[in-house]
Design a protein around this nucleic acid. Structure first.
Lengths: 148, 148
DNA sequence: TTCGAGATGCGACTGATTTGCAACTGAATC
DNA sequence: GATTCAGTTGCAAATCAGTCGCATCTCGAA
C-alpha cells in the first residue's frame, strides 16, 4: 500500500525538479527536514536540524528557502497564536487545509479538519467574490485536559 | 438612538475602571486612539496618533498597553497576512468575531461576518472539547477587482 | 568540460518588540 | 488637601527575527 501522497518521502524534492527549481545540497537538507518533521518547526529549529544533515547550511539560506517554498505554495506559515514568541512556524502544505488550535495553558498544538471550514471558504469566495490563495485559522484556548 | 455598544466612546476606558486597572494620561490617549480608529493600526501608527493627544507617550508604553489590552481580551491582534511587513495590527474586540481578507495585489483589507464561522467554532468546541478564547481567521487572495 | 544564471555564506543591517532602571503619578487612605 | 506606595512611565540599551549586499561558489544545460 503506497503512503498517502502527503507523506511520500522526497515529494518536495520531486516538486522542485517538476517546476525547474534548482536543487542544491543545502536545499536538499532543508527539504528533508521539512518532510520528516513530526511537529511544527520555526526557522531556528529548521536551521539546527538542517545543519545536522549539512553543516554548511546558513541561516539566510533557510530563510531564502522558506520564502521560495512559500512563493510556490508548498508550505504554510503559522503563528500558533504566538504562544512561544513572535516567530513563525512552518509545515508542508497538505492536500486539505486544517485548523490549528493552541492550548494557552499547556502549549499543545492540535489540528482539526472540518467540512464546515471548507464550506466557510466557499462562502467567502462566493459572497465576497474573493479568490482565496492562502487561509489560516488559528484558535487559542484551553484543551480538554487543561479546561477541567 | 444610542450608539451600538461596540462604538460607544469611552467604552475601553469604562472597562478599565470596571476591572480596577489604573487609568493614566498616556493610557487614556492610547485607548482613545484605539476607540476612534477607522482602520487597523500597527504599534507605530498607534504611537504616532497617541503622541498627538499626549506627546509624552513613549513607544514602550504603547507596547505595554497593547499587552495589557490583549491580556484582558479587549483587543485582537492581527497579522493581515504580513502583506505590509512583519508587524502586528490591532483592533478593538467587537461583540462578533469576523474574518479578515487581505488582497495580495492591492493590499485592501476586507472584513466578513459569517454564521458559518460561528458554527465552525461551535464544532471545534464540541468535537475537540476545546474551550475557545481567541480565534483568528485570515485569508489572503485576490479581491473582486484585482482578480479580473 | 565549459559556463553563466542562480545559489550560497558571511557579516552587517533593519524593524519590531522587550527590558532594566530610576523617576514619577494615580488613587486609596488618612 | 497631604501622604503614601504600588503600579506606571520614559529612556536607552538590548534582544530577536528576518533581510540584504556582495564576493564566491555550484548546479545542470549545452
Amino acid at each position: 500500500m503506497p503512503l498517502p501522497q502527503t507523506e511520500m518521502p522526497g515529494r518536495l524534492q520531486a516538486l522542485f525538479s517538476e517546476r525547474g527549481i534548482r536543487m542544491t545540497q543545502q536545499r536538499r537538507a532543508i527539504l528533508q527536514v521539512m518532510e520528516t518533521a513530526t511537529k511544527h518547526l520555526d526557522a531556528a529549529h529548521l536551521l539546527r536540524k538542517a545543519k545536522r544533515l549539512d553543516p554548511s547550511v546558513d541561516r539566510s539560506t533557510v530563510y531564502r528557502t522558506l520564502q521560495l517554498l512559500k512563493r510556490h505554495g508548498l508550505i504554510d506559515e503559522l503563528d500558533l497564536m504566538h504562544i512561544h514568541g513572535e516567530g513563525h512556524y512552518y509545515e508542508r502544505k497538505l492536500n486539505r487545509d486544517h485548523i490549528h488550535m493552541a492550548c494557552l495553558r499547556c502549549g499543545k498544538i492540535m489540528e482539526f479538519v472540518s467540512d464546515i471550514f471548507d464550506k466557510l471558504k466557499g462562502q467567502v469566495e462566493k459572497d465576497c467574490r474573493f479568490r482565496i490563495v492562502v487561509s489560516r485559522l488559528e484558535i487559542g484556548g484551553y484543551c480538554a485536559s487543561c479546561s477541567k
